[in-house]
Design a protein around this nucleic acid. Sequence first.
DNA 1: ACCAGTCAAGGAAGC
DNA 2: GCTTCCTTGACTGGT
Length: 303
Amino acid sequence: MNLSLCCISKSLSDEGHRFKTMTYTQFCKKPQDESMNELCARILHNFKITHRTIKYCQENYIQGYRLSSSLAPVLTHKNVNLKISDLPNYPSIVQECESIQQTLQKQYLRISAHPSEYITLSSLDENCIKNSILDLEQHAEIFELLGLPKSYQNPLNIHIRQDGDPVGISKRVMKVYDSLPNSVRNRLVIENNDNAKGVWSIKNLLKYFPNIPITFDTLHHKLLNDDWTHDYAFHSAADSWTFFTPLFHYSEGIVEKGKETRKHADMPTSYPTNYNRPVFWDVELKHKCHAIFKIRQLAANNL
DNA sequence: ACCAGTCAAGGAAGC
DNA sequence: GCTTCCTTGACTGGT
């Protein structure tokens, strides 16, 4: 079973290896020089934490890693609008990324990313679209820095945030999609969602986005299955990846009043089913690496 | 050292 | 139609 760690290793985090961040509000509170120096230092630090986490995955035979979506905060804010390559310490960041590439060459790890939940390519507000594209482009810039191919082997996964008429929404999304740079478009995949009155089930994603790989998320599907069984949705989504190995999401919801909610649980009680197909699973459980180890154990016990 | 409040996004959902 | 919620982990400032 190919399992993938999402952003953070809880073990490393507990040892004090944590990402650093900065909000736009904080950035504005101090003189620009001072804030920029601090921001650059934090971003470089984040690449080093990423490198450390990648090594952790390799040491523990974890086959995939989802990059944090806040490696380089503030830069994509509309009033800042900087690329990583604009930073004064860019050479140091490049150096760290080259070092990460060397690490990746020693032992394969499938790298992916899940840009912000707030990305929307269907918005009627042009500024929202613009901000979303900036965010996606920054992710692509990081993938390029890591020397990753522009393909679904290293996917950028997003949701269709907006619910309503799927015809109009998909039309708007595809118009933006066609304008995206190759570095984003060639990696972009779409995940099912689970809003109570939502339309973006696996069934509808496949129907309205027939040429884009669809990410099957087990928990979202439980909450919005649109009359498709788990195995039918799994196989249909897997087929959409054609000759790439699908990267799916596995999670379990906290049970409240006898009902499974969309809130992610800390640890698994079960494990994902592959139906004998090759699949990678991002493990979206809060205890991160510990959840991965538990899934392995549960699966091994049932062999 | 610890704790509660803050931060960011844009659409959903509730009143 | 307006307000609150969602989500996350780290930052911030007060004790």
